[in-house]
Computed example of a mutant assay.
Amino acid sequence: MAGSPDHKPDEAGPGVSMLNFHSFLHGGTSSLLSAVIVFPVYKTVFRQQIHNTPVRQAVAQLCREGPLKLYRGVVPPLLMRTLNGTLLFGIQDSLIHQLSSQKVLPSSALPAVAGFGAGVVEAVALTPFERIQNVLQNSQNDRHLPTLKSILVRLKTQPLAFGFYRAFLPITVRNALGSSLYFGFKGPMCNAVEGQGLSPLVSSFITGTLTSMAISLALYPVSVLVANMQAPVGGEATGWGACWRMLLRSRQRSVALLYRGGSLVILRSCVTWGITTAIYDWQQKHSG
């Protein structure tokens, strides 16, 4: 299992290199499969975050637009999720080996610390993908930015901090904390669930479901902030602090309105990370 503290640093060499390769490969394939399944749920959540609409209204809006529009913008999230899983699992596993060899941290803390580092790298690599995805899924951009090419051309004309790397700081905070918590709790929770007599595959699915559900709900306001910062193109360039204050005002400083879409986040997290964790752990155990 990735992130397990029982990796042995004295086994460095071709075996470790192959193990790291498997971590990158299996992380990418498991994330790709889960992304295809949950994209409609993600898009419904996004509409709620941007337009502040109830779930029924968001679903009705997507139904009126039809199946072709439903999967508009699917390419960036597929690429992003695949790269996300590749980097997250692969780098975390590589950092585990590096930190283990240095013996500067207790073994129980290694998965969480390595996860934090992987989350930072993930934010650097994936912020442009998330930016493009949020611009594509904002229906208010359909008229003046109808294609992926037009979006890329427009973002290239802007400074990085307001173009491709808009909302980089909150994304880094969200990803680093989320990854640290996920890998920190993944191993112990999976062992506890498997100890109840469940199969390893079911145990991994339940572990991914429970950990990601808790993390997603805790960090949901940050995701709402990111979506609202990244969805528009042009206009006044404001920092994350000003955007956060504007967001609170638009939600009438109501926690319930700020968490609108939270129920679907639970569903999305259950499906996405439950499947991802189960497939990844299964591949790792059967890679030989």
Rank of each mutant, 00 (worst) to 15 (best):
184 G>V: 04
170 P>M: 11
176 A>D: 00
150 S>M: 00
150 S>A: 06
195 G>D: 14
141 N>V: 12
135 V>D: 01
137 Q>S: 15
80 M>K: 08
104 V>S: 09
172 T>L: 05
163 G>R: 00
156 K>F: 08
123 A>G: 07
125 A>N: 08
153 V>Y: 02
98 Q>A: 11
105 L>M: 01
167 A>R: 04
193 V>I: 15
89 F>C: 12
118 A>C: 07
200 P>C: 12
162 F>K: 08
115 G>Y: 07
124 V>T: 06
160 L>W: 06
148 L>S: 10
203 S>R: 03
94 S>H: 03
195 G>F: 11
180 S>K: 09
155 L>P: 02
164 F>T: 01
127 T>P: 11
193 V>S: 14
209 T>W: 08
160 L>S: 08
188 P>H: 14
87 L>W: 04
148 L>H: 07
89 F>H: 13
122 E>P: 03
191 N>G: 14
123 A>L: 08
98 Q>L: 13
159 P>D: 10
153 V>R: 08
178 G>H: 04
133 Q>F: 07
89 F>P: 02
98 Q>N: 09
195 G>N: 14
95 L>S: 00
199 S>Y: 00
186 K>H: 15
137 Q>I: 15
81 R>L: 11
87 L>I: 12
149 K>C: 01
174 R>Q: 12
104 V>G: 09
202 V>I: 05
149 K>D: 05
199 S>K: 00
81 R>P: 02
90 G>T: 02
83 L>R: 00
153 V>I: 09
128 P>M: 05
89 F>M: 14
79 L>R: 08
156 K>E: 10
193 V>A: 15
194 E>D: 13
137 Q>A: 15
171 I>Q: 10
195 G>S: 14
142 D>N: 11
102 Q>R: 12
184 G>M: 07
101 S>Q: 01
167 A>D: 01
101 S>M: 04
186 K>R: 15
149 K>R: 06
96 I>S: 00
80 M>W: 06
193 V>D: 13
177 L>G: 09
206 I>S: 06
171 I>E: 05
206 I>E: 05
92 Q>I: 06
202 V>R: 03
112 A>S: 12
152 L>Q: 13
98 Q>Y: 11
192 A>D: 15
186 K>E: 15
165 Y>L: 06
169 L>F: 05
94 S>I: 03
178 G>I: 06
144 H>Q: 05
101 S>V: 04
106 P>M: 07
200 P>V: 14
195 G>M: 14
96 I>T: 04
148 L>V: 13
201 L>N: 12
202 V>D: 05
102 Q>H: 10
172 T>R: 01
181 L>G: 11
81 R>Y: 07
172 T>M: 09
149 K>L: 05
132 I>P: 01
157 T>F: 02
193 V>P: 12
171 I>Y: 11
79 L>V: 15
99 L>D: 01
126 L>S: 05
163 G>A: 01
186 K>M: 15
114 A>N: 04
126 L>T: 08
208 G>M: 09
129 F>N: 06
142 D>A: 09
118 A>D: 04
167 A>W: 00
190 C>P: 05
192 A>I: 15
117 G>P: 02
113 V>N: 01
143 R>N: 11
91 I>V: 14
141 N>F: 13
122 E>N: 10
126 L>E: 05
118 A>K: 05
174 R>N: 08
99 L>I: 08
177 L>Q: 10
82 T>V: 13
91 I>F: 10
195 G>L: 12
135 V>Y: 03
144 H>Y: 04
146 P>M: 03
152 L>S: 14
160 L>G: 09
96 I>V: 07
131 R>Q: 13
118 A>V: 09
